[in-house]
Computed example of a mutant assay.
Amino acid sequence: MIMDVTIYHNPDCGTSRNTLEMIRNAGIEPIVIEYLKDPPSREELVRMISDAGLTVRQAIREKGTPYLELGLDNLDLTDDQLLDAMLKDPILINRPFVVTPMGTRLSRPSEVVLDILPETHKGAFAKEDGEQVLDAEGKRIV
């Protein structure tokens, strides 16, 4: 299956690794952008957040980041201020964002990516923790 898929990936993140492998299980080799090394532009970040149906605040990662130290929990901060912080310190961008012709998702949990992939999965798939996501026919386990 030829499909342009881009994943904004952090190889140290289990959710991101699981998402990447689910994309590959669909027979797609995505464009992998390690966003900590190569962050998206402001325009790309705004578009991904909007296309995923999220608010800027929903796209911020709190865990394992300087979120609290930077005072980003202040609800008076504007979207522009939050975006500035995310672009200055990309660890604040939640992950993994996946962009396909079928849509854009913040794939948390990782199986959310299945909503924007064709049903071309090559058999069963389990996450790193052993949780089964796809059955032997490549169908989603609900």
Results as ranks from 00 to 15, higher is better:
H9W: 01
H9Y: 13
L134Q: 06
T6N: 01
Y8E: 01
A52K: 07
P90R: 01
I31K: 10
P39M: 03
A59L: 08
E29S: 14
K37W: 12
L68R: 14
F125V: 08
I116V: 11
F125Q: 13
V32P: 03
Y35L: 00
Q58N: 15
G53R: 00
F97I: 01
G64D: 12
L114D: 08
K122C: 05
I60E: 15
L36M: 04
D79E: 11
K63I: 13
L77C: 05
G53L: 09
V56H: 02
V32A: 12
Y35Q: 01
N94W: 03
Q58W: 06
E131N: 08
P11R: 12
L117T: 02
D51I: 10
K88I: 00
R17N: 15
H121F: 15
K122G: 12
E43R: 09
H9D: 14
T78Q: 13
V113P: 00
T78M: 09
S50V: 03
E111C: 09
P118H: 00
D38S: 14
R47C: 02
E44G: 01
E131Y: 12
M48P: 01
I28F: 04
S50P: 08
T78D: 06
I2Q: 15
V5S: 06
R140W: 15
V112I: 12
V46A: 03
M3L: 09
N10G: 06
M22I: 06
S107Y: 04
S110I: 05
E21V: 03
V112Q: 10
L106C: 09
